[in-house]
Design a binder for these strands. Sequence first.
DNA 1: GTCTATAAAATGATAGAC
DNA 2: GTCTATCATTTTATAGAC
Lengths: 206, 206
Amino acid sequence: MTLEKAKPRTRIQKQNIAAIMDAALEVFSTNGFRGSTLDQIAQAAGISKPNLLYYFNSKQAIHIALLSELLGIWLAPLREINPEGDAQAELMAYIRRKLELSRNFPRESRLFANEIVQGAPRMEVFLQNDLKHLVDEQAKVILNWMDDGKLALLDPYHLIFSIWAMTQHYADFDAQIRMVRADQITDSHDGAEEFVQSIFQKILAP
Amino acid sequence: MTLEKAKPRTRIQKQNIAAIMDAALEVFSTNGFRGSTLDQIAQAAGISKPNLLYYFNSKQAIHIALLSELLGIWLAPLREINPEGDAQAELMAYIRRKLELSRNFPRESRLFANEIVQGAPRMEVFLQNDLKHLVDEQAKVILNWMDDGKLALLDPYHLIFSIWAMTQHYADFDAQIRMVRADQITDSHDGAEEFVQSIFQKILAP
DNA sequence: GTCTATAAAATGATAGAC
DNA sequence: GTCTATCATTTTATAGAC
């Protein structure tokens, strides 16, 4: 009852919490918050339901812990854009990081996609604060680059959104791509990196 | 019990079924299939839950009826590409139709987005048959145009996916865009049409 | 820390009166 | 066709033994 989630002590606690987080990611990213059950998560984590609720007091608590843990990963690629670097190289590197995330962490991408498609009722604060401020900041950096003639003149916000759309699409809509190309490819990301990078090279050139 | 859903006779039946379909669209597109309840749909439709189940025998039946009704709308823009027309003009017109759909029917877009993000368990047949065949067909048309030097040389499948990603993003991830730009815009589609069209003009030019 | 048992609420669906 | 009442199941969460 008086569990210190902040600093788990024993090895078994760490193990269980890690198993729960991984199970929760698997289940929530596939079914959304309301579509997921504690039974599913407990089974995926290999523990009993009451034991699951020993570590986290409610379904909400698991979900919040999971989102919190992953917000950093989600923001990192945008955060790492260096205003001192070369404009086109920095943005192409950003796109590459996003594509890598989409390929290597598709469940994380779908977890957030589920939330946002459903109106982001549990992410308002994060989106309106952390994400908004970061986007505003990097939009200014991009605008400066454009003023200096380093990039094509585009709306920096729409440019960022288009990068999100193009890179996340392969993770979020993976099922659709796999079914449409069932006879042609095995991995929906096949050729995606090259394609996305080549079109953004065209888009960004001044 | 022996309701002929195919040909509703009375005016009141038509009215109720239309109200149910609209309510189901509203609820399913916001919460996903499992996240939606019959109570929500009945309330949104302004009828009682047993009466809702008089018109449709189960929650699944409502969902299937809704998806079936909307599949045509969803395929129409791609279907309307004319192989005899001008390559760039046809694709730009396709993009325009997709952008209009995204702006005017965001709930429909999110309904499908919810399904696909969650692995499309109730749309496999449609995606693997109708959509796949249409995409294969139009990919060939695009490939011919490229061979004739009318378009830049690109993977036609990735080109189609990129159009889906860019156009649907404004409907599906509307919540995120609105929250990130809360202080700057009221409609998340503001400027989207112009931006998307301008970058695809760059992308498509041979 | 983990389990069995169980409570309490939500939810899909049916029965039967009108 | 529509309603009230109700059932059966699922699902979240708790109690208490070990």
